[in-house]
Design a protein around this nucleic acid. Sequence first.
DNA 1: TCATTATGTAGCTATTTGGCTACAAATATA
DNA 2: TATATTTGTAGCCAAATAGCTACATAATGA
Lengths: 107, 107
Amino acid sequence: MNLRRDVFQAIADPTRRAILLLVASQTMTAGAIASNFDTARPTISKHIQILTECELLYQEQSGREIYYHFNPNKMKEVAEWLMPFAKMWDERFNKLENIMKKYKAKK
Amino acid sequence: MNLRRDVFQAIADPTRRAILLLVASQTMTAGAIASNFDTARPTISKHIQILTECELLYQEQSGREIYYHFNPNKMKEVAEWLMPFAKMWDERFNKLENIMKKYKAKK
DNA sequence: TCATTATGTAGCTATTTGGCTACAAATATA
DNA sequence: TATATTTGTAGCCAAATAGCTACATAATGA
């Protein structure tokens, strides 16, 4: 359980994506997170560990409880990777681009 | 090699992310894609197959050659999943869409 | 203090993954 | 037609993954 701990690998797992949605909506303790799943608690604990290692979550200790916070800046890395693709799915952009193309062709 | 063929699992692998960037920039044959990597051709072929199965790529046969095209709409699913998080990483913007708008304005 | 609670770790397992070589199938070309 | 090219498939393997149970550690609180 060591290598390939990047954000993309982290969000590949559906359970981890669910954890991220949960914690992003509200900071929670490890136990509170686990209580949202049928999966065994140590399994969720491992998922939380993976998310923490790649910095999508960070810990705040409070006595014996550990609160997990969502780190938006790390998730932003995914959005940044998507940017080069984004122009291709936006219809308005494609329309504009096509209009410009036609306009230039006429000149 | 069957289950879990969703977009998130597909983009988890660095080689597949590189293939997507390549093909998004230009439609290419399987051989042309493979020639960009040190990895053995059948290995790349398998990556291409995974990307095709989850519809990030689609095929266009031309004789014995197969051209692979990028499907932006499928990638968009990732951006849509990111939306609930987007407002958290930049105060100035409330939607991923706005960030994309800004990106395109720069171009 | 002693039991309870919150959390993480160890160690095991079955399955999936990503890689390779060897081979097959189909199209193009000399 | 015989050969070369393009691509995919089969089958193997080592490593990684996600899951579990059992145990360890540390803080609360009766």
